[in-house]
Simulated scan of single mutants.
Amino acid sequence: MADVEATGRLHLDWHPRLVQGLLQTPDYAREIFRCAYSDGPELQAAVAARMARQALLFDSGTTLRFLIGEAALRWPIETARTLVSQLDRLLLFLADGTANIGIVPFSAPFGAFSYHAWSVLAERDEGLPDLVEIGLETAKVDITDPEQTTAYREAFERLSAVALTGDRAMELIRQIRQELTDS
């Protein structure tokens, strides 16, 4: 995955229900991977690989834009404590500008919503075509057809138009964080 990610200078990443891998804390990633691996070397290797990929966040030659559905901020994978730590990390990224993050709130018009997660890698090395990656339960789908990749880029912009960013995104995350810690 890291090799493919390195081919694009522009990353557009949408997920309606989870925080994306490049933004995850180790504990949040561990809880996700625990759905597929039992505790042990495979689980630890998966978490370590995910954390290593995060070096891309600090690559000044790459533009990363993340859109996260509000459900991801409210749905603990295993524990509320881990989700609260994950929300704290998102707040740090928003505060210091490490990542361009938008939150698509439940109040956004449904016409802007996209049902599944996907990533667009664009402005790729050596004239490679734009690539849309869609992770399914048992497989990964890669799309390079220009009409289809354009449709995903346009969908990203529709989602971006209704996303909360900056202070408004931070306000929603803080509100949800408070709800999680109060319950």
Rank of each mutant, 00 (worst) to 15 (best):
G135K: 10
L136K: 03
A122Q: 07
T79I: 00
R158H: 14
D88L: 01
A6Y: 02
F33E: 09
F156T: 07
A80G: 07
L131S: 01
A29S: 06
I173A: 04
V84I: 15
D142C: 08
R65A: 14
A169G: 09
F156G: 06
E31V: 04
I68W: 03
Y28I: 02
I77K: 01
E70Q: 15
S85K: 03
D59E: 11
E147Y: 10
P41K: 09
L10F: 05
A163C: 10
D125N: 11
A112D: 11
L131K: 02
D167L: 02
L64C: 07
L73S: 02
A139V: 02
T98I: 03
A139I: 01
A55R: 09
D142N: 14
G127N: 09
L91E: 14
G102S: 11
V47H: 03
R65P: 00
R30H: 02
D88W: 00
L128W: 05
V141K: 13
L131N: 02
A99T: 04
D125S: 12
V4D: 08
R30S: 09
E70R: 05
Q178M: 04
S183W: 10
M170E: 15
P146W: 08
M170C: 13
Q86T: 01
L22P: 01
I134C: 08
S183L: 12
S183I: 10
A163F: 09
A117Y: 06
H11G: 04
L22M: 09
I77P: 01
A95T: 09
D167G: 01
G97W: 09
H116L: 07
G21S: 11
A161T: 09
R53D: 04
L43E: 11
S183V: 13
I103N: 08
D142I: 00
Q24K: 10
F58Q: 05
T165S: 12
I101K: 00
A55T: 07
I134E: 10
H15I: 00
P109F: 06
R158I: 05
R34T: 15
T62G: 00
D125Q: 12
E133L: 14
R50D: 08
R124D: 12
R124H: 13
L12Q: 15
R74W: 06
D96I: 03
Q148P: 02
F58T: 11
D27Q: 14
G135R: 11
P16W: 12
S183A: 14
D27N: 11
R177E: 14
I68Q: 03
L18G: 01
S107R: 12
L73H: 04
S38L: 11
S160M: 08
F113D: 08
L94N: 02
E171P: 00
G21W: 09
A6W: 03
L10H: 13
H116P: 00
